[in-house]
Amino acid sequence: MIRVSIDPAPIELAMELSALEERGAGGVASFTGVVRGDGGVTALELEHYPGMTEDALCMLAEQAMDRWSLLGVTILHRVGRMEVGERIVFIGTAAAHRREALDACAYLIDRLKTDAPFWKREWRGEDASWVEARQSDADAAAQW
C-alpha cells in the first residue's frame, strides 16, 4: 500500500508510524528531514510542481515496492514555509524484515532528492536565497 502526500500541514509522526505498523510488518523504517538552523537560517520555503510532484513520488514508491518486498510505503513532503526544527519530509517503509525496510527507506530519500520537482529557499531573517543542488545528492541517488 502506497501513501503519498504533499501538504503545507505539519507531519504527524506517531500517526504515520502506527499506520505503517498496522500493515502487518515485522519491521518499519523511517527517515524524517528537519529544518536545520545552520548559517543563520531562520526558515525554509518549499515550492513544487503541482501534479508532477505527486506522480514523481508515486512512481518512486512503486519502484521501491517492485524492488523490495514491502508491505507499505509512505512519502510525505511539506510545502510552503517551515521554521527551524519543523519536519520537511517523512519517508516510511514497512516490510516483513528489517533489511528490506531499511534499504528501501534509504533508496527513497536518496532518489526523492533528485527525482521529485521541489525547490528550497532559505530565509535568514528578511533575506531569501534559493538553495543550489549538490553533487553529493546526485551521487547518492546514482548509487542505486
Partner: peptide
C-alpha cells in the same frame, strides 16, 4: 513544458 533550476527537495 516546464523550465526550472535543478531540484532541491527532501
Amino acid at each position: 513544458v516546464a523550465l526550472f533550476p535543478p531540484v532541491t527537495g527532501g
